[in-house]
């Protein structure tokens, strides 16, 4: 049985960069517990030596020659940005003064 406290959930939301309201925190805490209980049964499977799987035909490490290719059009990319300045993305302050 997994137990998710509102404090633990607050921490997860911070890691995920999600500002959650108190009502959302309460709702997700309940729902996550239900979901986690239902997925908990995978722990009962003995899978000690099994190789983790992620591709249909087991493709791994694909390499290519390091050649110069055209990139996206700068003006077109910047036209979709929330804010730009001097041909660059303009972003909010990254460092705090204190």
């Amino acid at each position: 049985m997994s137990k998710i406290t509102p404090e633990a959930l607050k921490h997860l939301a911070k890691l995920a960069r999600l500002e959650l309201t108190e009502a959302e925190l309460a709702m997700y805490a309940t729902q996550l517990e239900i979901i986690l209980d239902s997925v908990d049964k995978i722990r009962e499977v003995a899978a000690g030596d099994v190789k983790p799987m992620s591709h249909a035909v087991g493709l791994t490490n694909v390499f290519r020659e390091d050649v110069i290719r055209p990139s996206l059009d700068r003006a077109e990319v910047l036209s979709q940005a929330p804010a730009t300045e001097a041909n660059r993305f303009r972003v909010p302050r990254i460092l705090n003064e204190d």
């Binding site: 997925v39 995978i42 099994v50 190789k51 983790p52 799987m53 992620s54």
Partner: peptide
């Protein structure tokens, strides 16, 4: 996550 990837293999 790790266990899920293994059961996926099974």
């Amino acid at each position: 996550y790790g266990q899920a990837q293994k059961v996926r293999g099974l």
